[in-house]
Amino acid sequence: MAEAEEAAGVAEAEGLQERLKAYEGRVAVASGVGKDPVNAPMIRHWCEAMGDTNPAYRGPDAVAPPTMLQAWTMGGLSGHTGRPGRTGRSEAYDELLALLDGAGYTSVVATDCEQEYLRPLKPGHVVTFDAVIESVSERKTTKLGTGHFVTTRMDVRADGELAGTHRFRILKYAPAAKRTPVKRPRPVINRDNAGFWEGVAAHRLLIQRCAACARPRFPWLPGCNACGSQEWHAVEASGSGTVFSYVVMHHPPFPAFDPPYAVGLVELAEGVRMVSNVVGVPHDKVRIGMPVRLEFLRVDEELELPVFRAAAEGGEF
């Protein structure tokens, strides 16, 4: 009996995989048109949020930051649906997601994206785009659970000429049964940011200061984005700042995190901004301009992270 049930399960999985594979190459988005032409105000907002002061993104000959490629295709809260010539995702893509939902893979998480830049986008360019379902993986087992990776490839055009490609990958999965507490994902430490994490281990928040133009910067980079110099010094930040912007995370639920919680873009007294959790007040009490103070939060026996504690409403730190 057990062998028969196992054989039936294998056959069912193979049948599902065959149906999933049939969606590869099908249209995910057809003849999409950006809601707005490439424009200077959106470029400015992006650069202010990212703290990017590169002069190439300002003035009469400005170009858009390459990493904004997907931003010009996004439908925002109202989406693209119902606007003639401005389509959203296709029926085929919705059918694929419904098929995965019906097979029990009801949770979703974005895993990664890849972008290739072929020409600069400039104010006035009209952005159009098409996307295909590039691949649906075989069933994979991850720490989150078992499921399938779905990859779409979007071709982005400026005034009809290919400007870049954007590959976006999600995991549709059935959550694994919780057996033991799941640790937070580990930060990626490399030669460019190792000094920052060494500072965190010593309860010091280190930023960089360019040795040539004295401009502070964060996150850590190998060169100055203002003057290009590769010479710099590590400087300890005071730890005081204000909430420049924030979001409240509700979905998707993710092991080791307990939504809802506030993630802030904090402007430090030194003039740089960093992303971290805002703690000390309920998530719905976080406000732009709220003063915050650095502290270090131990999340497990191996990992401490810098977070920012807000004063309770009307209170002190």
Rank of each mutant, 00 (worst) to 15 (best):
W46M: 05
D284M: 05
G104F: 06
P255E: 00
G9T: 07
D258A: 15
I189C: 05
L144P: 11
E302M: 10
G271M: 02
A2V: 07
T180I: 12
L221S: 15
R153L: 02
E24V: 07
A28M: 10
C213A: 01
G280Q: 04
E316S: 13
S245P: 08
P66H: 08
E91I: 01
A214V: 00
L171T: 03
R86Y: 10
D61W: 11
D94A: 14
A40S: 15
R273E: 07
S31Q: 15
F317L: 13
A40D: 10
V38F: 09
R293N: 13
H250W: 04
E304M: 14
A202T: 12
D192I: 12
H148S: 06
L205N: 01
P41H: 08
A211F: 10
T141G: 04
A212L: 09
E198H: 07
E231P: 04
D112L: 10
A30D: 04
S135R: 10
D94H: 14
W197S: 03
Q230L: 14
C227R: 08
V150K: 07
H203R: 03
M274N: 02
S31K: 15
P123F: 03
P222Q: 05
G79D: 05
R26H: 06
E116I: 06
G51H: 04
H125E: 11
V29S: 00
E267I: 05
P60Y: 01
A176H: 01
R217W: 07
L171K: 07
P123T: 09
R209E: 07
P41R: 12
G76W: 03
P219T: 15
A28H: 09
P252S: 04
G25C: 09
D61S: 13
Q115L: 11
S240E: 13
Y23E: 00
S78F: 08
E24L: 06
S229V: 08
T165R: 12
G195Q: 07
V200R: 03
A4R: 15
N193P: 00
I133K: 04
E161K: 15
L20W: 00
R139W: 02
L297Y: 11
T151S: 00
C224E: 00
Y173W: 00
L77Q: 11
T111K: 13
A22T: 09
L294Y: 03
T165A: 09
E6F: 07
A312S: 12
Y57N: 06
A11F: 02
V126T: 06
R184S: 06
L118F: 15
K21F: 05
N190I: 11
P259I: 02
S107R: 08
V266H: 11
E231Q: 10
A158C: 06
Y57V: 04
R287W: 06
R86A: 13
K140L: 05
D36W: 13
K35E: 09
L118I: 04
